[in-house]
Amino acid sequence: MKRTEITLADGRELIYFDERDDAVRDQPDRRELPPPPPASQLRYDPLTDEWVALAVHRQTRTFLPPADQCPLCPSTAQRLSEIPAPEYAVAVFENRFPALSGRVVEEPAEITPFTPVRPGRGRCEVVCFTDDHHSCFADLPPSRVRTVLDALADRTAVLGELDGVEQVFCFENRGVEIGVTLHHPHGQIYAYPFLPPRTRSLLAAARRHAERTGGRNLYADVLAAEREAGERVVAANEHWTAYVPAAARWPFEVHLAPHRPVPDIPALTDAERDAFGPLYLDLLRRFDGLFGTPMPYISAWHQAPVRVDRELGHLHLQLFSVRRAADKLKYLAGSESAMGVFINDVAPERAATLLRAA
């Protein structure tokens, strides 16, 4: 894999990850762009012990442009985009409308004595999986999935070294039902300056389990139990298993986890990275085959924090959809949105059966 860094017209970084060593990436960004916005403001919610980001500049971000105006397609003589090259394999660049960034401004110390304020220091990046606007991740060959995984490993390692970053989160949103604002196949990376609520909850449970069992890894034990039970396993190979969690929150939710406990993507071996692609592509095609239509989904990598409790983590990919039937979506209504208590309409065992048959 060849890695090439360039600077866009407004000073943001773009990195090409090429599968050919002879790829030349010297095309300049010929646009005239305003300076990137400053970092968002983080406000602490004392009632939930959580941080909320206020990124008001994101109101003006690009929203569902037509294909001939897509900012993630390669640049042409007639139209300049975020990618100056006329073609590319995988490209990663700092988001033009970031929720978190290193361009911090001075903030007041607090809103009230109970609500501290801090700059939204961190980083948000866009990961373009292909230059083909009309493709999707499930259409990629395993070799391209490997390139994407290597790019995510690179960015996880680099972003984890930034001052103040506590966790690196890689994910893909697909489908307008999820809230996608650009149709071009792409994912995102958030480098958080705090541990998100989901991570804190996972770590707390893992810590309690380790204390009870003399240091055993909770996720590794759960994965072993699911592999032994087999009822909710959708697919597997030598290095990875895909299974529906016994307490799945979403109608169709699958965890894809390596058999060897590792904290993050950079820790995966070459063999594990090679084995991931075929199984993940099989899983995505099963999702699309469920109802004979492209499945909206969120694909989220759960990685260990970069500074604390790394021994408690176990890398895994959470893939889930809001679609519960061919013509029905799962909405986060009162119980889920207000109280955080999920009510699933599809039994995990039924979901696993349908996915195996898809």
Rank of each mutant, 00 (worst) to 15 (best):
residue 247 A to W: 02
residue 296 P to C: 13
residue 323 R to S: 05
residue 112 T to I: 00
residue 188 Q to S: 13
residue 87 E to Q: 14
residue 222 V to Y: 15
residue 319 L to G: 02
residue 246 A to G: 08
residue 335 S to I: 00
residue 346 V to P: 01
residue 157 A to Y: 07
residue 48 T to F: 04
residue 45 D to E: 05
residue 188 Q to C: 05
residue 175 G to L: 05
residue 201 S to T: 15
residue 217 N to H: 11
residue 48 T to K: 10
residue 203 L to N: 05
residue 58 R to E: 08
residue 259 H to D: 15
residue 328 K to R: 11
residue 289 G to Y: 13
residue 50 E to I: 00
residue 77 A to D: 15
residue 302 H to T: 08
residue 187 G to S: 09
residue 243 Y to C: 14
residue 214 G to Q: 11
residue 135 S to Q: 06
residue 303 Q to Y: 03
residue 259 H to I: 06
residue 217 N to Q: 03
residue 144 R to N: 09
residue 315 L to E: 07
residue 135 S to V: 12
residue 97 F to L: 02
residue 163 D to G: 06
residue 14 L to F: 03
residue 174 R to K: 15
residue 225 A to F: 07
residue 321 S to D: 08
residue 181 T to W: 08
residue 301 W to S: 15
residue 211 E to C: 05
residue 229 A to V: 01
residue 148 V to T: 12
residue 8 L to M: 13
residue 189 I to W: 07
residue 299 S to Y: 06
residue 209 H to T: 03
residue 117 V to W: 00
residue 127 V to M: 08
residue 136 C to Q: 12
residue 187 G to N: 12
residue 45 D to Q: 01
residue 165 V to Q: 10
residue 153 A to Q: 08
residue 224 A to C: 04
residue 77 A to F: 12
residue 243 Y to K: 02
residue 219 Y to N: 12
residue 291 F to W: 15
residue 54 L to W: 01
residue 168 V to D: 05
residue 175 G to V: 10
residue 352 A to D: 04
residue 75 S to K: 07
residue 183 H to G: 08
residue 266 P to Q: 14
residue 340 G to H: 06
residue 85 A to M: 07
residue 73 C to V: 09
residue 304 A to L: 08
residue 37 P to F: 07
residue 293 T to V: 15
residue 291 F to C: 08
residue 189 I to Y: 10
residue 322 V to N: 14
residue 125 E to S: 11
residue 299 S to E: 09
residue 28 P to S: 01
residue 27 Q to H: 09
residue 190 Y to E: 01
residue 33 L to K: 12
residue 295 M to G: 10
residue 227 R to Y: 10
residue 272 E to A: 10
residue 108 P to V: 01
residue 194 F to N: 00
residue 97 F to I: 06
residue 180 V to R: 04
residue 57 H to T: 11
residue 187 G to D: 08
residue 183 H to R: 11
residue 347 A to G: 00
residue 27 Q to R: 10
residue 166 E to N: 05
residue 302 H to N: 13
